[in-house]
Design a protein around this nucleic acid. Structure first.
Lengths: 341, 341
DNA sequence: CATTGCAATGTTCGCGGTAACATCCAGATC
DNA sequence: GATCTGGATGTTACCGCGAACATTGCAATG
């Protein structure tokens, strides 16, 4: 049962223990090729007794097949990417592919490093967040010769396939809804977003629609780090102190929106009449607040699923290798904090 | 720049492009051994121009060295494990080790499968949540011959090293604090926990201390799935309808605790006098609620860091391989919802 | 009973690197 | 000038497995 001498086990050990060739053991363990039931049973017994675990490193080298899919995302801590991962996992579980995650912390340097690291394991595909990469990263992706799916965002030029929503459009859509709701003095709160291109695009779409209607953002506030709920409270207070006339607050994510909502309720604001508010991302983590925050669903689960499907399809041999572009439609949810038109 | 014919690049390609042997290229790319500056520059230029990415599969096979650390945890979606991951990453970033995550969904079968899968990549170490594993899993861990750190929980017998808190003690500690606060009619809410051994142990420690003081849990309620915030509200309402006399509510996690808190505030309860409440896990995600929930810090970040440190130390050659046991002390935080003694 | 057919099993070679050792050569040393 | 030295580079032999092909043996066939 135990491997006390501590020489790592190999196929040879199993082969000797069961009295067949290494090749036959290999066939049994991979369920490939014809093996008699008797032999199969014998081999499985020996393998189990020894506690043998096949060496995928050797296997992958010999077969030049790796069942890994690299997933490169900025962070795991903000609820949006875990949900994307769930979607990816749901699909890949039905195949023999396996996701491996790399984190970029929203920096290009790290993205490049992580990508290099991942590609050095010769995965079968790459799913990577965003369309903005360094030239080197883009070159690596292209040179890798494997299917690449860029996710989250469709506003730009993909290397290969892309699945996401248009954040520009999401911003526009929210702006229109706010205007239709009759709001005119609008405050904006978001992260300081040097590298959050998606937040930037939403903001651009948002302000453009407002501009066309002759409305300007009256006040804005940015934060980074700390508890988002607390920051939402603080920024909301700060904004309203600067301009008590504001009748709408647009938050770049639901968490700060929730903080703002709590603060407004405590201070007796009449929502959504005296003041309306909306966030972004449809975190169902937040269902159960005193009021339901207006928000926009970024289709995260679906994005993960679609991206994984593209990879899974492409990996089959003889599969169509042409790039796919999927633009999902972000759905607005009015909740209790945005007047309906 | 591009590899259009699509034969994957190898060391040989770089070696031919730069006019030196493959071995020299290998040395340059790994920064190992003596190579003249001129040669180094030449090789790096060729590698970059070709867009060559070393093949770690081949490298690992040849050197039998893999810079991966398997991290096996139940889930990524409940805020506790992401924080552990952060701790692990913080430490491993200073080394050349890299974490690779596998998810078990709180089931033993999946744990066993994921472990097998991970071990087949011959990682340099394993960090795995909990002390309860199938016999097969335990056997694999032992047979692997690599450092293993079980995390989160210290109430049990580890395979090798262990870093965590005593959940039994955490439950006891909270029970004592509640009793000292003068509460006597206590309700409990948690997940249906067939496989959440840590929640179970907390519950056991909790009830035992109460029992010694002659106090019994008056009401209890369990949930699974859905939005924790909503569930917290619903369960709280249900419990108080069944027994309006309850003067304390203990929640097995902060999220449902937050839901309960919001419900109680909306219904005009006087907290913490008429009724007190406490959760578990110290999610700073939740800082910013109208009241700060009493809770207990499970030392998640620190657990991740310590576990990673153990692996990092052991991986060095000539390192002390003896098992380590680290029991961290969970700290109670009274917040605004638990009367101080 | 020799021949065929096919399932079951074995053999050879190479995947793309690296460890370990071998070689080469310019400058230092006597 | 012969010898030594050590940095720079090359050669050889694997690492553990799987693809492709080779072989074996036994039942079916004429």
């Amino acid at each position: 049962m135990s491997n006390s001498d501590h020489r790592p086990l190999t196929l040879r050990d199993v082969s000797e223990a069961s009295g067949v060739s290494e090749m036959t053991v290999s066939r049994v363990l991979r369920n490939r090729g014809d093996v008699s039931d008797a032999t199969r049973a014998k081999v499985l017994a020996s393998a189990k007794e020894l506690g043998y675990v096949p060496n995928k490193i050797a296997g992958a080298l010999a077969s030049s097949r790796v069942n890994l899919v690299a997933v490169i995302i900025p962070s795991m801590s903000n609820m949006v990417f875990p949900e994307v991962m769930t979607g990816i996992t749901q699909i890949l579980e039905e195949t023999d592919l396996q996701p491996v995650v790399g984190l970029t912390d929203y920096t290009r340097e790290k993205e490049e490093k992580v990508l290099y690291e991942m590609l050095s394991w010769r995965p079968s595909g790459v799913i990577i967040a965003g369309l903005e990469h360094s030239d080197a990263a883009r070159a690596m992706l292209r040179a890798s010769g494997i299917p690449v799916v860029e996710i989250m965002d469709v506003d730009g030029t993909p290397v290969d396939s892309v699945v996401g929503i248009s954040h520009r459009r999401a911003g526009e859509k929210m702006a229109k809804a706010i205007l239709k709701g009759g709001y005119r003095k609008i405050g904006f709160m978001g992260t300081t977003m040097p590298r959050d291109h998606r937040a930037r695009k939403r903001f651009e779409g948002f302000t453009e629609v407002l501009a066309k209607a002759g409305v300007e953002i009256a006040e804005r506030e940015f934060y980074s780090g700390g508890s988002a709920l607390v920051k939402g409270r603080e920024m909301t207070q700060a904004l309203l102190e600067r301009d008590p006339e504001l009748d709408f607050l647009y938050y770049s994510n639901d968490m700060i929106g929730a903080g703002g909502l709590l603060w407004l309720l405590e201070h007796g604001y009449d929502i959504p009449n005296q003041i309306g508010l909306a966030g972004f991302n449809g975190l169902n983590l937040l269902k159960g607040l005193p009021r339901e925050l207006a928000t926009m669903d970024a289709c995260r689960l679906e994005i993960g699923r679609r991206a994984a499907e593209i990879i899974a399809n492409r990996v089959q041999d003889g599969a169509d290798q042409s790039p796919v572009r999927i633009a999902l439609e972000p759905m607005i949810s009015y909740g209790d904090t945005l007047r309906r038109p």
